[in-house]
């Protein structure tokens, strides 16, 4: 089996690119971009679009797309979705995505936009809605996947989510982007054993894995003082996620790449050594 590739996310942020430049140039086998971060209103190319095209061309690395805003779970294909898909098609012509992933959930309804992917009910209707949008996405980029999201509150038992995910992969004939930090966050917050969640997934669907770190919510957020883990992608990879990655790697026969995610704006100068250490650790695990 070909070892999976090591990927790093790139963002249109000069400081972030400067601080991750060495890792991007020396360690990344592929790059992951979120196309809508390059768009302006109406899904038109924004002020950083040309720069990103140039950066990717200069790197000579393959690219995957990882979107947030297609809103996979919204029923039907409305005018907004058509504009979004047209923009992805345009970007695919420029970036030649190896594969394209979107977030599990829905980002808007009834002309109201949440931006944060919200949970779906575990129904056949939801399975078919997600599958329909993934099929339209696959008309543009031949290999598509969706990512397990973090639900701070879910519809139905969170322990049943793997069954729901497996059903969508089957209905849509698509891959799964397994975000191990998202699994860690959701399971910890909602009291589900991580190993049971992972064991219930059909790991033959996994084409990409994400690892990252996060944070803990401010205790002032909730009147109870309760805190929750957040999928903020703004910290080093925690030990539990490395453990999950070690478990998952030999069990994902169709895995193509693992991306170490870090959100732009979260990487200070003092954070660079730890981030580079995470990249080196990931490289060792993938060899």
């Amino acid at each position: 089996m070909t070892p999976p590739l090591l990927g790093l996310n790139v963002a249109p942020d000069a400081v972030f690119l400067s601080r991750t430049r060495r890792m991007l140039e020396e360690e990344a086998d592929f790059l992951e971009i979120t196309p809508e971060t390059l768009w302006a209103a109406g899904c038109a190319p924004g002020p950083h679009w040309d720069d990103m095209v140039a950066l990717v061309a200069k790197s000579a690395l393959p690219v995957v797309g990882h979107g947030v805003g297609l809103s996979l779970g919204t029923p039907g294909i409305d005018a907004r979705a058509e504009r979004w898909l047209a923009a992805i098609r345009r970007d695919h012509a420029a970036f030649h995505f190896l594969w394209y992933s979107e977030h599990f959930g829905f980002a808007g309804a009834d002309n109201a936009w949440a931006a944060l992917p919200l949970p779906l009910p575990p129904t056949d209707e939801a399975v078919q809605s997600v599958a329909a949008r993934l099929r339209r996405l696959r008309d543009i980029v031949p290999t598509v996947a969706f990512e397990n999201n973090v639900g701070y509150a879910t519809l139905g038992a969170p322990s049943s989510e793997p069954v729901f995910i497996n059903a969508i992969c089957s209905a849509a004939e698509c891959g799964l982007l397994l975000d191990l930090h998202n699994v860690h966050v959701q399971c910890d917050n909602l009291g589900v054993p991580t190993d049971a969640y992972l064991a219930a997934l059909d790991l033959s669907n996994v084409i990409e894995i994400h690892v990252s770190g996060g944070s803990i919510s401010d205790p002032r957020w909730l009147a109870s003082g309760r805190t929750m883990r957040l999928d903020s992608h703004d910290g080093p990879v925690p030990p539990e996620v490395w453990t999950s990655l070690a478990w998952a790697l030999p069990r994902c026969p169709n895995l193509r790449g693992v991306v170490l995610e870090r959100i732009d704006g979260s990487l200070g100068e003092a954070d660079i050594p730890a981030h580079e250490a995470d990249v080196r650790r990931l490289r060792e695990m993938l060899c």
Binding site: A153, L190, L222
Partner: peptide, 12 residues
């Protein structure tokens, strides 16, 4: 749905 989870979702 977990009320605290809903509150955190709303904050985000």
């Amino acid at each position: 749905m977990d009320p605290d989870g809903l509150r955190v979702t709303s904050l985000l």
